[in-house]
Write a protein that binds this DNA or RNA. Sequence first.
DNA 1: AGTACCACCTGACGGC
DNA 2: TGCCGTCAGGTGGTAC
Length: 273
Amino acid sequence: MPELPEVEGFARYFAQHALRQPIVRVRVRDERILGVRKDVFSRALRGHAFERVQRHGKHLFADAGLTWLHLHFGMTGDLSYYTSSVNRHASSDDGSRMTDDEPRFARVIFDFANGNHLAFEDMRLFGVVDLTSSPDAYIAEHELGPDPLEITLAQFRAIVAKRRGAIKAFLMSQDVIAGIGNLYADETLFQTGLHPRHPVDRLSDAEVRAVYNAMRRILREVIRVRAKDGDWPARYLTMHREEGERCPKCGGTIQRTVVMSRTTYFCGNHQRL
DNA sequence: AGTACCACCTGACGGC
DNA sequence: TGCCGTCAGGTGGTAC
């Protein structure tokens, strides 16, 4: 699920737990998650400490002095900070795991000098863990667009003016704006009342402003509720992603279709072309 | 430039 | 119980 709001949550979690602790060991449980060679990765980080984190779109960066750690969470990425407990091998479950508390899908684990650990988990291995010289370098190299929470309405209008095609594709293109995925693209359009296939070059000024406002309001609201472990509000499309469901906004029927080869939900009544 | 399709992975779920 | 197809919130490459 990790889109911008979730990654913002990971950034705060990382900052809260894993800063300024010397990294005494780096354990790579599955090399397929790495974008660099394992020995290069470990050597670059061992003995250093993460000093600060930065998020851009769905990407998380942690300053490790000479280099930056870069994390992308794919579809199933997550972070877990935990304390090892030595003598709980005989407890409750089948006891087959080697380390207590180590998450089942931990792919990379940082061991800190204080005895605690930060694990990057990713069941499906679509995420990436690697190194970069700086967030800006990574952003330039991968041609990421601006973060939607960092741009003004005027900048957003300028970006819109350069594009054509379906509004949903526009919102999801990371080189246009970085951070919105399938879920929040649908949510933004649902709350704005626009059909996902509405061409961006046929949006009125008022509609462009409505998209900008909804997108930012949603991202910020979700950051806030998820920070408290809450659910999405019931008025969100996100809580009704199923064909035939009742639209919480107008009572219409939720439709399912495919846009940009992604499953798309929208209200057949208040989101018309 | 925009879109469609495949590939990369693993697990959950429904149907038979 | 088990096998099989389908689906899942992402991205990158290729091909129209």
